[in-house]
């Protein structure tokens, strides 16, 4: 497939530069248009904290924050996010300075195998920022896009509830 000038910009299948602000740093990827944001992060930027579970938007393991909003990175193309601000699990807390959600997941034993955990924590970060969950029932409903096949749900809900209270009382 070649390229062709048209009214709607230039249609192209070629590899192109896409600049994303990832975890506070501008990063340029050189990618084909069919590269998902998930594959862009994992395969081109080496940020393998974001997991590929189902790759169809059903499990939530690939959840990242795009311009502050949680989405499934497997169901969007990296090229659609030129100039966007992306936050992945690598940008949430650091070794020795864990995010309150990360600490709460440890304290509440909120995982077993850990594969879904980065997505759970990114999703919960979005949930807390949205500010719509108050009760455990609301946390469960608004975390329903994140599956945990080990079945750690009770502890995940408890960890998020705890972190939510910490966030509320933070100065």
């Amino acid at each position: 497939m070649g390229t062709e000038a048209s009214a709607a910009g230039v249609f192209s299948a070629a590899v192109r530069p896409v600049t994303l602000s990832v975890n506070g740093a501008d990063r340029e990827l050189r990618i084909a248009p069919w590269t998902t944001l998930l594959d862009g992060l994992r395969e081109y930027l080496g940020l393998t904290g974001t997991k590929k579970g189902c790759d169809h938007g059903q499990c939530g393991a690939c959840t990242v924050l795009v311009d502050g909003v949680r989405i499934n990175s497997c169901l969007t193309l990296a090229v659609m996010h030129e100039g966007a601000t992306i936050r992945t699990i690598e940008g949430i807390g650091a070794e020795g300075a864990l995010h309150p959600l990360q600490q709460a997941f440890i304290d509440h034993d909120a995982f077993q195998c850990g594969y879904c955990t980065p997505g759970q924590i990114c999703s919960a970060t979005g949930l807390i920022a949205e500010g719509r969950a108050r009760t455990p029932e609301e946390i469960r409903e608004l975390m329903s896009g994140n599956l945990c096949r080990c079945g750690a749900y009770p502890n995940i809900v408890a960890a998020i509830e705890h972190a939510m209270r910490v966030a509320e009382t933070a100065p």
């Binding site: 062709e4 048209s6 709607a8 910009g9 249609f11 069919w34 659609m80």
Partner: peptide, 28 residues
């Protein structure tokens, strides 16, 4: 996923023209 060409539309008329020009193009 199949290989495809990608472009960004900046207004409605542009988007509609691009779609009319190629029956197997899709909006995303």
């Amino acid at each position: 996923m199949n290989r495809f060409e990608y472009a960004r539309a900046s207004d409605v008329a542009e988007a509609v023209r691009a779609r009319a020009a190629d029956a197997s193009a899709r909006f995303i």
